[in-house]
Write a protein that binds this DNA or RNA. Structure first.
Length: 882
RNA sequence: GGGGUUGUAGCUCAGAUGGUUAGAGUGCCUCGUUGACAUCGAGGAGGUCACAGAUUCGAGUUCUGUCAGCCCCACCA
């Protein structure tokens, strides 16, 4: 039983424990099980690669909530799974192919997809492995993938219904295009970054030779596609010129000067060149004024065949050449440095090109409204609350969602085009015949859906939708979504919209938002910086429990945290502390009658105190978990276990454990075991492995800790006695202990060396307390002997606390002056405090407005301070008289 | 341009509904290895809570403004 190693070595047991949990089906949930449903669907990690530290945080938070609720008796389901991550995964495999000297086009769609599935298999397994290593208690029997049969069926059904309702449409529009990924992107996949560029001022001559209009541009190469110049309708400078024709330099195309209120009169010359095919605003203006769309840039970022000598040039090379040519032709007025925002592909960081193409879109307005309402009504709550505002304002300004991607890896859009009649058909099942003309010459839409389309359905597709399964009925809406603030727009809002649309209810009641895990310098962990740390590496070195504890302590919802090895180390030290406290107990427990139960009267003050503190800790931890303040809960646990249980209580039991009174020993062991066992359960959601292995060694605990009940104050009610008195006792004794330790230290006496102490006690109550607790003082301070006296001993160092004067007699004469100086300093400190208290109590408005108990506590404070002052003054006088 | 967030000990961070002398971890200094633990114990130093106002009997906490950092959103070429 006690053959437990001297130090905590998590590597020796974590894997076996997890395997046992899994073998015993401890994670498994059924819809029929008893208890309130509690469900979390995992934010599915991308099968692009392995988990990083951000995932470790995300999973840890979820696992804490899940384990807590499971122990509480809720019918708890944590649904695991992974995401196919369209663009990202495809890019990885294409990169692999490039290394092999081939590409996806050579391979063909089918063979290529086989390769991606192989990739998925590899990394999907790696992710499952990592999640297990971390201790995640998900229901593995239900593991899902965004492209499995069920999710695909859900996607089809939702797509077709939205299409039939007119909420999905196909249109020729200007969209963000990534020339490298070779696909359209949605607005949120474009990252805007300010760049140092230039503003080129160009002059476009009037056809009639009557002069020029000056325009400015940051992208001169697009002038090849200009089909107009716009000015504001109220702009006096141009009023008489609107309607005239300009000649586009280099190209010699005739283009109109027209008026549109989009134009800002104040900017530049107030005239804008208009390129409908390559700028979203120009595109809109082009539609309003029937301008021609001249495409001059290809999908791959080179210039099109129709631009003469510029054809085939890369867009940036073309820019250089154009500028030269404009300058040579006298069309360049000036160039200024100019800072402006440029869009980049969030995947590959290539500068995005707005291009016109046929794409599929989801109409957002009607879907967004209920999603806004759900948050405003409180049906859906963000933790912390501040994200509500961000969520709402984003939804209020939402634009249609481009969902088609020119990729192969993903859900292929279920639309078929008939080559005979030209009609398009959208269908939930594959079709081989055109329903319009019964022709057989169909070809399927090649595009696939944006990854986030299937992710948006995740909370109900994983529960069985489109089937009306028992799980769907039982666990939807899920309880809470745990995710980082970086994907609120990508994912959270879309789940809410889809959930409301297809289930009529929000997908989750709470959204628990956490921050990013950063490196020691506060930088984001990224591949390019090479500053990422693999959670598995940390686990190998320090154990999963340490990593988990490190990730939650000192962190609050929504805030970023920094990764420090030293923080992991201190979490490991905490684990080691628990390990050794347990080892101590187990060693002493060897010849202990496990069935012994003390009578309430057998409990000592210290026993009652630790049980009372445990009860407070249970309440605090529970309350904070419920509020999602997991960092605070962890702090309370740390504090209770390390300071109160280990540093004080265990020390206080030693006299009994090593003494000869068998019953006293048994009582102490009983309480030690009781408190430890209860504490382990309280800590289990945070440190699942350690708590499991230790608890299994305790004589009175049966079964897995993860299925044991979560502690409650009620559970301790038979042992809780007279808590108010216990607190008072503890207060006095711990204060005396601190003062004695302090004095010893100042005297340079080893803390474990015996030293005589004299106490001068004012009230009978204090005397009673100290007499009863004198052994505790002795045990914690190595004070011996401790005597009570009415007089102040002359040759001694002294300290004073409420109601008690403490003296450490010295063997020789004391250095009177030094001691007086020390006491005077102490006296000043107390006087200062007393002065501020007196000030308050002399303030009539304080007396009349502050609550009675606040006033009373100030009075008590003052009385105590005055007592201390008088005691100190006496002592100083006594020393001065020497 | 709009919005958010942060500013508390050398460092990293806690401090819910305002109310004792503002806390923890880590680092630093002093002392201590006889059996739970040196991955430890005891003690200590270290903070005008960014700055300025306002509200209040009372502000680290609420409000306004200023400064500094970070982040998000945004179709002014």
């Amino acid at each position: 039983m006690s053959n437990i190693s001297k130090t905590y070595e998590p590597q020796k047991f974590e894997k076996e424990i997890y395997a046992a949990w899994e073998r015993d089906k401890n994670f498994h949930t059924t819809a029929e099980a008893a208890g309130e449903p509690y469900c979390i669907v995992i934010p599915p990690p991308n099968v692009t690669g392995q988990l990083h530290m951000g995932h470790a945080l995300d999973e840890t938070l979820q696992d804490i909530l899940i384990r807590y609720h499971r122990m509480k008796g809720d019918n708890t389901l944590w649904m695991p799974g992974t995401d196919h991550a369209g663009i990202a995964t495809q890019a990885k495999v294409e990169e692999q192919l490039r290394g092999e000297g081939t590409n996806r086009y050579e391979l063909g769609r089918e063979k290529f997809l086989e390769r991606v599935w192989q990739w998925k298999e590899k990394f999907g397994n790696r992710i499952s492995y990592q999640l297990r290593t971390l201790g995640s208690s998900c229901d593995w029997d239900r593991e899902r993938f965004t492209m499995d049969a069920g999710c695909s069926a859900a996607v089809r059904k939702v797509f077709v219904q939205l299409y039939n309702e007119g909420l999905i449409y196909r249109g020729r529009r200007i969209t963000n295009w990534c020339p490298k990924c070779n696909t359209a992107l949605s607005d949120i996949e474009v990252e805007h970054e300010t760049e140092q560029g230039h503003l080129w001022h160009l002059r476009y001559p009037f056809k009639d030779g009557s002069g020029y209009v000056e325009v400015a541009t940051t992208r001169p190469e697009t002038m090849l596609g200009d089909t107009g110049v716009a000015v504001h309708p109220d702009d006096e400078r141009y009023k008489n010129l609107v309607g005239k024709t300009l000649i586009l330099p280099l190209v010699n195309r005739e283009i109109p000067l027209f008026a549109d209120s989009y134009v800002d009169k104040e900017f530049g010359t107030g005239a804008v060149k208009v390129t409908p095919a390559h700028d979203p605003n120009d595109f809109e203006m082009g539609l309003r004024h029937n301008l021609e769309q001249v495409k001059v840039i290809n999908n791959d970022g080179t210039m099109t065949d129709d631009v003469g000598k510029y054809s085939g040039l890369d867009r940036y090379k073309c820019r250089e050449v154009i500028v030269k040519d404009l300058e040579a032709g006298g069309f360049l007025v000036k160039v200024e440095p100019y800072e402006h925002a440029v869009g980049h592909c969030s995947r590959c960081h290539t500068t995005v090109e707005p291009l016109i193409s046929k794409q599929w879109f989801v109409k957002m307005e009607t879907l967004a409204k209920p999603a806004i309402e759900a948050v405003k009504s409180g049906e859906l709550k963000f933790v912390p609350e501040r994200f509500t505002k961000i969520y709402i304002s984003w939804l209020e300004n939402i634009r249609d969602w481009c969902i088609s991607r020119q990729l192969w890896w993903g859900h292929q859009i279920p639309a078929w085009y008939c080559d005979d009649c030209g009609e398009m058909t959208v269908s939930e099942t594959d079709i081989e015949e055109c329903p319009h003309c019964h022709g057989k010459n169909l070809h399927r839409e090649e595009d696939v859906l944006d990854t986030w389309f299937s992710s948006a359905l995740w909370p109900f597709s994983t529960l069985g939708y489109p089937e009306e399964t028992p799980e769907l009925k039982k666990f939807y809406p899920t309880s809470v979504l745990v995710t980082g603030y970086d994907i609120i727009f990508f994912w959270v809002v879309r789940m809410v919209m889809m959930g409301l649309k297809f289930r009529g209810e929000v997908p989750f009641k709470h959204v628990f938002i956490h921050g990013l895990v950063r490196d020691e310098q506060g930088r984001k962990m990224t591949k390019s910086l090479g500053n990422g740390i693999d959670p598995v590496e940390v686990i190998d070195k320090y154990g999963a429990d340490s990593l988990r504890f490190m990730l939650v302590t000192g962190n609050t919802p929504g805030n970023d945290l920094r990764f420090y090895w030293s923080k992991v180390e201190s979490a490991r030290n905490f684990a080691n502390k628990i390990w050794n406290a347990s080892r101590f107990l187990l060693m002493n427990l060897e010849d202990f009658d496990a069935k012994f139960k003390p009578a309430r009267a057998d409990l000592e003050l210290a026993d009652m105190w630790i049980i009372s503190e445990l009860a407070k800790t249970i309440e605090g931890v529970t309350k904070n978990i419920e509020r999602f303040e997991l960092g605070e809960a962890a702090r309370l646990l740390d504090d209770f276990i390390w300071s109160e249980f280990c540093d004080y209580y265990i020390e206080l039991t030693k006299a009994r454990l090593y003494g000869s009174d068998a019953k006293a020993k048994a009582t102490a062991l009983f309480v030690l075991e009781k408190v430890l066992e209860c504490t382990l359960r309280l800590l289990h959601p945070f440190m699942p492995f350690l708590t499991e292995i230790i608890r299994q060694k305790l004589p009175n605990a049966q079964g897995s800790i993860m299925l044991a009940p979560y502690p409650t104050r009620d559970e301790l009610k038979d042992l809780l006695t007279d808590e108010h008195n216990v607190d008072e006792f503890a207060n006095v004794i711990l204060n005396v202990v601190r003062t004695i330790r302090n004095l010893k230290s100042e005297l340079g006496i080893d803390s474990r060396k015996k030293a005589a102490v004299v106490l001068k006690v004012k009230s009978a109550r204090h005397k009673e307390i100290l007499q009863e607790g004198i052994n505790y003082v002795a045990a914690l301070t190595f004070a011996e002997p401790i005597t009570f006296a009415e007089e102040k001993p002359l040759h001694a160092m002294s300290g004073v606390i409420d109601g008690v004067e403490i003296y450490l007699p010295l063997e020789g004469l004391i250095d009177t002056e030094k001691e007086i100086a020390r006491l005077t300093k102490e006296l000043e400190k107390i006087r200062k405090g007393a002065a501020s208290t007196t000030g308050k109590l002399q303030n009539e408005r304080f007396l009349s407005k502050a609550p009675a108990e606040v006033v009373q506590s100030e009075r008590d404070k003052l009385a105590a301070a005055e007592e201390k002052i008088s005691s100190l003054e006496q002592r100083i006088k006594q020393l001065e008289d020497l």
